[in-house]
Design a protein around this nucleic acid. Structure first.
Length: 638
DNA sequence: ACTCGTAGGATTTTT
DNA sequence: TCCTACGAGT
């Protein structure tokens, strides 16, 4: 998995930082940080960030890096101004990162690759250290990782890779299943072992998966089979709304008599998790959610880490920018701009620029004094926490930075969550320290090297880990996660939700090449299930502030119908309701109270359009509890 | 320097 | 609906 590549490369270049041409204090930046660096770079080049968006630049750069290409390896293309300007940005970005000692995710790999490539004796050392190499999920490697492995394996290295081209779902990160095909040709004496017998799922689930994935053109080709019986049919639920979808799933979860952690709710986008969370919470069903917002990417965590970083290393400009005015201290954009320009001119860090600006009185009195307060504050903290352990440092900063009060300004509830997260960070730090000190003192020189202090290690850890070790209480919890996070896992019962056009397949992935990856994603989802598979989609969904009518995902249509059993509320309920709405359409105005003999009182929430082309949305209540929402597109009734 | 209002956009998946 | 960028007012 990609994670281990990054972790190991981080380890290697930390150890050989001089050879890798990095400052010892280099810092790993995540995609958000990378984006803000690019924003600044584009601005400093005085380019139009509407035509050359930071996002495009990020994509441009990461794609090249994942192919092992630096800016100097690329050539300007005549007539392609956009490309050439991107190249310009790439060059400036590399210089900027080098100057600030920032290393993005792709850079970790690239540095390590170049380090080995350019230092044969070092490479030889690592080659003899790893005589046998096993790579799992090989279809998720990108070209750079492939070359990295080739380098490490060398001529005599024993390399064993496992992969499934039908589960290649990281194309957006430049992973390529072609690596799997190339492997056969580029390594001498490859022995290929095909695994087509499946020991996990029922025959029905496999048949559905096989039929679906057969639609893809770009395949090495295989057909899974099993000795197991056909098992249950696949169930399909058509919900009225996303709330109804969540309700349905929660009821099934509640009714299940087996272990709860054997159930998983899988969705395409993280945003979909919220409704399921709410529904499960209401019913007091324990659940565990994987990486909703990654722990270490949360604002409060990043703020706190920025304090730690700046305290550790005054020249960390990213950290400086982040906290210089968080909480608000009256240091504004203008002051900062002055500092940035001084820093750029004299090739010094923002911290040094600040000191310099104050000494040489280049700032207005007010800016100068607020800035002095900040510099002194950091120095004070430095004194105060010097002797403390890592988690005590964070605790100290939590109380004295004023971050707490700062968060409380937005909203009480938000602040509460942020505080809890900060406590969680303290916990994580404590655990990290314990694990660190529990390591056997003298194993190999690699396992436990005193190369860097614990803080640096912890910071690298926070940059590379999602922070999933938190909250160990996941026994007996329903598992909620994105389809991407589900790869490699299996469950007795799987709910595949939000199977609607423009959501899954996602609206940004509708062209043919991307569509195949979406289909593989669906294939991954299906094959997570051992026995029970529920497919869910909703007729309507709230999007951008409107309720929109959607169509079922093409992937549902691409599965064999005879294996799918619809479990939608029976037609005996649905049709009378729809015809009633059609009859009542003249009277259905927004806000109107209505009465239905079966569903009782309701209220018309929405009425769009006119006459037969109207879309109506009614909310029915039974007693004081909302029973269901009904939607109808009246034109469909005729 | 900060706060508040309005307009416009919507970019999904992860190390 | 919710986020962001930008401008006016304090």
């Amino acid at each position: 998995m990609g994670k281990y590549f990054s972790q190991y490369c981080s380890f290697v270049i930390t150890k050989h930082w001089q050879l890798a041409n990095l400052p010892q204090t280099f810092q790993i930046i995540d995609s958000d940080d990378q984006l803000s660096v690019l924003k600044q770079v584009i601005k400093s080049l005085e380019l139009d960030d509407k035509v050359l968006t930071p996002r495009q630049a990020q994509h441009f750069i990461n794609t090249r890096k994942d192919h092992g290409l630096r800016a100097k390896d690329l050539v300007a293309e005549e007539g392609d101004a956009w490309h050439n300007r991107m190249l310009h940005i790439y060059t400036a970005y590399e210089a900027r990162c080098q100057q600030t000692g920032s290393v993005d995710f792709a850079e970790l790999l690239l540095r390590c690759y170049e380090l080995w490539r350019d230092n044969p004796s070092l490479l030889a050392y690592y080659q003899q250290r790893f005589q046998y190499i096993l790579v799992d999920e090989f279809q998720d490697t990108n070209p750079l990782q492939y070359n990295w492995l080739q380098l490490l394996a060398g001529q005599s290295g024993q390399l064993f890779v496992v992969g499934d081209d039908d589960q290649s779902i990281y194309g957006f990160r430049n992973a390529s299943a072609a690596n799997l095909a190339n492997f056969n040709q580029e390594f001498p004496q490859v022995q290929l072992i095909r695994l087509e017998q499946n020991y996990r799922s029922t025959g029905t689930i496999l048949e559905v998966a096989n039929t679906l994935i057969a639609r893809n053109d770009q395949r090495l080709g295989k057909n899974l089979w099993t000795q197991a019986s056909a098992g249950e049919p696949i169930f399909l639920y058509t919900a009225y709304s996303e709330m109804d979808e969540a309700r349905f799933v929660a009821e099934k979860v509640q009714a299940y008599s087996g272990q709860r952690q054997e159930m998983a709710i899988l969705y395409r986008t993280t945003a979909q998790s919220r409704l399921f969370e709410e529904e499960l919470l209401q019913r007091s069903i324990p659940y565990r959610i994987y990486g909703s917002l990654r722990f270490y990417e949360r604002l409060e965590i990043k703020d706190m880490l920025a304090y730690l970083r700046l305290l550790h290393h005054r020249d960390d400009d990213g950290a400086f920018e982040r906290i210089v005015n968080t909480p608000k201290r009256g240091i504004g954009e203008k002051t900062l701009e002055t500092l940035r320009s001084i820093a750029r001119q004299q090739e010094i860090s923002l911290w040094q620029a600040a000191q310099h600006a104050i000494e040489t009185q280049q700032l207005k009195a007010r800016a100068s004094s607020t800035l002095t307060v900040f510099l002194d504050l950091i120095q004070q903290f430095d004194e105060q926490i010097k002797a403390l352990s890592l988690h005590e440092k964070i605790k100290h900063l939590k109380t004295y930075t004023g971050l707490v009060a700062h968060y409380q300004k937005e909203s009480k509830e938000e602040a509460q969550r942020r505080l809890e997260n900060l406590d969680e960070l303290i916990n994580a730090a404590r655990q990290f320290e314990q694990r660190r000190s529990n390591l056997p003192a003298a194993t190999t020189e690699e396992a436990n090297p005193p190369i860097v202090d614990i803080l640096t290690e912890f910071l690298a850890h926070t940059a590379l880990e999602a922070g999933e070790g938190q909250g160990n209480e996941w026994e007996d919890c329903v598992q909620l996660m994105t389809l991407h996070a589900a790869k490699g896992l299996e469950f007795e019962m799987v709910f595949l939700v939000g199977l609607e056009e423009n959501l899954f397949p996602h609206q940004n992935s509708l062209d043919e090449s991307k569509l195949e990856e979406e289909r593989r994603l669906c294939y991954v989802g299906i094959t997570r299930a051992r026995r029970y598979l529920y497919l869910c989609h909703s007729e309507t969904r709230y999007r951008y502030g409107n309720r929109e009518f959607g169509t079922p995902s093409r992937f549902i249509r691409e599965m064999p119908t005879e294996l799918i059993q619809a479990v939608r509320l029976s037609n005996s309920i649905v049709s009378p309701l729809k015809s009633w709405m059609a009859l009542a359409k003249g009277k259905l105005h927004r806000g109107e109270r209505v009465k239905h003999k079966q569903f009782g009182e309701g209220v018309v929430l929405n009425y769009e359009g006119q006459g037969d082309y109207a879309r109506v949305q009614i909310k029915f209540a039974s007693g004081n509890k909302w029973l269901m929402m009904a939607y109808a597109q009246l034109e469909k009734l005729y």
